[in-house]
């Protein structure tokens, strides 16, 4: 057993867990934050993407102990109270989901993509950047549209809702 402490969505947490505990298990099972999903469990699908020290990583492919001392943000940590994060709002506005299973990972990856590329990100780049996030409903059109809209929204450009 090992003690893993971190700042999870702005709150200091600590727990004694098996050394082999994956970060995603620590988030979901130890701390009850089930917004982060386990899809493929083989680092392909991206449903489990969270931010560790500001970087979007697959939490099924990281030990909780590796994140000891880190700042971890999950999809539950994005909104400001009842006000959705612009990426969450854009996914709702543009219907960027069908069944919703991949959505938490899509949103966490999208926040990272937008922070690296800024407002002018084009559709091709978004699609390429989503290489590690799979939507089994194949609802990519609206996911891409939502990310593009959020990028413009977050960087000040006015976007008309479609």
């Amino acid at each position: 057993m090992t003690t893993v402490s971190m700042t999870l969505n702005g709150k200091k947490v600590s727990a004694n867990v098996d050394d082999r505990t994956l970060l995603v298990q620590y988030i979901r099972e130890t701390h009850g934050l089930t917004g982060t999903h386990v899809g493929c469990d083989t680092s392909q699908c991206g449903s489990c993407v969270v931010h560790v020290d500001g970087k979007a990583v697959k939490s099924c492919t990281m030990l909780a102990a590796q994140a000891d001392g880190s700042h971890v943000t999950t999809v539950e940590g994005l909104a400001n109270g009842t006000e959705l994060h612009p990426v969450q709002a854009a996914f709702r506005e543009h219907h960027g989901l069908q069944c919703g299973f991949c959505t938490p990972g899509m949103i966490m990856s999208a926040v990272d993509i937008i922070s690296r590329h800024g407002a002018d990100i084009d559709e091709k780049t978004i699609r390429h950047e989503l290489e590690g996030n799979l939507c089994r409903c194949t609802g990519y059109q609206n996911i891409v549209k939502a990310i593009q809209a959020a990028a413009q929204e977050m960087h000040g450009a006015k976007v008309a809702a479609e």
Partner: peptide
């Protein structure tokens, strides 16, 4: 290499 999340690790 891999995808963006893999490249961060």
């Amino acid at each position: 290499i891999g995808d963006p999340a893999v490249r961060y690790r």
